[in-house]
Amino acid sequence: MKTDELTEKESIELISRMIEKTRNEMNGDDFNSFLAYGYAAVAISIAVWLLTHFTGNDMWCFGWFAMFIPYLLSFFKKGKPEVVTYMDRMMDSVWKVIGSMFGISLLIIVVAGAISGIIDFSMMMPLSIIYAGIGTSITGLIINEKWFVWTPLAGLAAAIWMLTCGWTGGSYDNSWNLLFAASFLIYMVLPAHIVRHKISRS
């Protein structure tokens, strides 16, 4: 492309052509982060369930801290993207807020537990499902993808089940791990594969 002057018609055509080129970038997300966090959640929850089931030791639930691994690994992924669309920025901001919600919840649980003498992380399980579900739904609304918008409702049902158990005198149960795995499979892994398939077909 040169710096030559253009006719008015050529100018309009050039603007349209360039905008069309950027449109392709907006469909560029491969949803790998959804698969990374989704599969990590499923794998960890099944591992924790198996270990707790066969050893009878609830301490295996600390295996949940392995969920930080995908986050830490994300620092090693290749450099900054060549182009950042408004959609990218918006999704990035949404997940930063969701990440902060996780961080604040963990902090409050630790502080409140330190004061009361009992640090109980079991509340993190339903909260995580709700937070990640909200993030996934908002992502779905931004990219206009109904699979991401609606499937978190399945996770919400599981989270409310867990919370209701807590309020009605029950407590953390090993089966929560399986509910957690099912939730992330339904609203993170499955939609990400469906949308990736759609993108590859188009």
């Binding site: 492309m1 050039l14 603007i15 905008i19 080129k21 950027t22 907006m26 669309t85």
Partner: peptide, 13 residues
């Protein structure tokens, strides 16, 4: 041509 292309590209990102 080139300056208009640059600005048009940056318009949507």
């Amino acid at each position: 041509q080139l300056r208009l292309a640059i600005v048009s590209l940056l318009l949507t990102v």
